[in-house]
Design a binder for these strands. Structure first.
Lengths: 146, 146
DNA sequence: TTTATATAGTTGCACAAACAACTATATGCC
DNA sequence: GGCATATAGTTGTTTGTGCAACTATATAAA
């Protein structure tokens, strides 16, 4: 029994991810008006470094769901604005370990608060059970396709 | 009662829209392996023209949730590969009406089948009720933020 | 009718993503 | 040790996006 539950108009918004684009844009605006000179993509890299500092670019690829060239350039730009530093691994000279600078460590609290804020705005009026179902469905979609 | 239902790890995937990115990538691959020389973004413009041909660039902005420069360039590229044509409006000379070429009309059936296909793969194992809840939540999120 | 303002679209710039081709290092096998 | 292969990261190219500044046309107000 196939899942033919998508009328044409709905198909489009599922594929283009209108909701998550709207969330990302709202968060970007919050960054901008807070004077944070940071793109959402850069933030998404810092996000994983705040969870575990000093991981490799390859691990950042896996965590952020991006390919290697994308991470190379994001790290390039983060290095330029002094938020991370590449440190060659001593055990494997192919690997760069990426470390947060002090300046980046200071950004965690403020940006995470803005992110939680944004999600609360986005989910206003949505009951908790439905949020859980939605998270579950999106996780299955991701697992089905990866 | 705020909706603080996002543990840190989940917050990230909601903001970055991992699921819809996965869907778009899968569809792009289907286009590529079918020999369709078409990006998802270009397809998303054609999608709305198939529903209503000859709308303005501004209307395409609203429909595709993009800004004017983005549509200008997508239409540029679609014109280059001969899928659409700009026609100046006779009533308002500021406006370009965008029309599908015969070549683009032929693409509708094949690409829409691939898109439905992709969604069916993505939603394999998800019961219909949960899909409905998910669609509902994403719509509310979009409405909350737009 | 002239002037101000709003709207449609374009262009320049910086950043990001996908793909392919490339370099450098590590590992496994003979 | 020497060669094949896999892995980590970089670079070039094309396409797309967001923002600001711009041109051209239309509309409204004086």
């Amino acid at each position: 029994m196939p899942n033919n539950h998508f009328k044409k108009g709905e198909l489009y918004s599922f594929i283009t991810g209108k909701a998550s684009i709207a969330i990302a844009r709202r968060l970007q605006k919050k960054f901008n008006t807070s004077g944070l000179n940071l793109t959402i993509e850069q933030w998404s890299v810092l996000y994983h470094l705040w969870k575990e500092d000093g991981i490799s670019q390859q691990e950042l690829c896996n965590a952020t769901f991006r390919d290697k060239p994308s991470i190379t350039r994001l790290v390039d730009n983060l290095e330029k604005i002094n938020l991370v530093k590449r440190v060659p691994s001593e055990h494997d000279r192919r690997i760069n370990l990426i470390f947060l600078t002090k300046q980046a460590q200071k950004l965690q609290e403020e940006t995470m608060a803005l992110a939680e804020n944004t999600l609360n705005e986005a989910l206003t009026g949505v009951p908790a059970e439905k949020i859980d179902v939605c998270k579950e469905v999106l996780q299955i979609v991701y697992d089905n396709l990866k």
